[in-house]
Deep mutational scan, measured.
Amino acid sequence: TETRTFTDEREARRFEQEARDNGKDVQVRESNGKFEVRVK
Rank of each mutant, 00 (worst) to 15 (best):
D21V: 10
R38V: 15
R14G: 05
R38G: 05
Q17D: 05
D8P: 00
E2Q: 11
R38C: 14
G23S: 03
Q17A: 09
E9Y: 09
T7F: 10
F35I: 09
E11V: 04
E36V: 13
A12Y: 04
N32G: 10
N22R: 13
V37N: 00
V28G: 02
T1H: 10
R13S: 05
R10N: 11
N32S: 06
V37Y: 02
R14L: 12
E36M: 09
Q27E: 15
K34E: 09
V28K: 03
F6S: 00
E16I: 15
E30L: 12
E2P: 06
Q27T: 13
R14D: 07
T1M: 11
E18I: 11
Q17I: 07
V37M: 02
V39I: 11
R10G: 12
R10P: 05
K40E: 11
K24Q: 10
A19G: 03
R20M: 07
T3R: 06
F15K: 01
Q17N: 07
E30F: 15
E30P: 05
D21I: 10
V37W: 02
R10T: 11
G33V: 00
N22Y: 08
E36W: 09
R20L: 10
T3H: 07
R29T: 14
R4P: 00
V37E: 01
V39R: 02
R14F: 07
N32L: 06
F6I: 00
R20D: 02
D25W: 15
E18M: 11
Q27I: 13
E16Q: 07
E9S: 06
V28F: 15
G33H: 03
D21P: 00
A12N: 00
R14K: 12
N22D: 09
T5V: 14
F6H: 00
S31E: 12
V37A: 02
G33P: 01
E18R: 09
V37T: 01
K24P: 01
Q27F: 14
D25V: 12
T3D: 04
Q27P: 01
E11P: 01
E9Q: 07
E2C: 15
Q27R: 08
E9N: 03
E9G: 05
Q17Y: 06
R4I: 10
R29N: 09
T3Q: 06
K40F: 15
T5L: 12
A12R: 02
R4H: 12
F35L: 04
E18Q: 11
E11W: 04
T7M: 09
D25Y: 13
R20I: 09
F6V: 00
K34L: 14
R10A: 13
F6A: 00
V39E: 03
G23C: 10
R14E: 10
R10H: 10
Q17H: 07
E11D: 10
A19R: 04
D25G: 05
D21L: 13
R13D: 02
T7P: 03
R20F: 05
V39S: 04
K40M: 14
N32W: 04
E16Y: 10
E2G: 06
R29M: 12
V28H: 02
F6R: 00
G33E: 02
A12V: 03
V26K: 00
F6P: 00
E2N: 08
V28L: 11
T5R: 06
N32P: 03
A12T: 01
E9T: 03
R38D: 08
E16A: 15
T1K: 06
E30S: 09
R10K: 12
E36T: 09
R14P: 01
F35E: 01
A19M: 15
R38W: 13
A19E: 08
E9H: 06
D8M: 03
A12D: 00
D8W: 02
E18S: 09
E18T: 09
G33Y: 02
G23L: 04
F35N: 00
D25A: 09
E30T: 09
T5H: 09
V37G: 00
T7Y: 12
E16V: 13
E30W: 13
K34A: 09
F35G: 01
T1L: 10
D21Q: 13
E9D: 03
Q27M: 12
F6D: 00
V37P: 00
A12G: 01
G23V: 02
V28W: 13
G33M: 03
E11N: 05
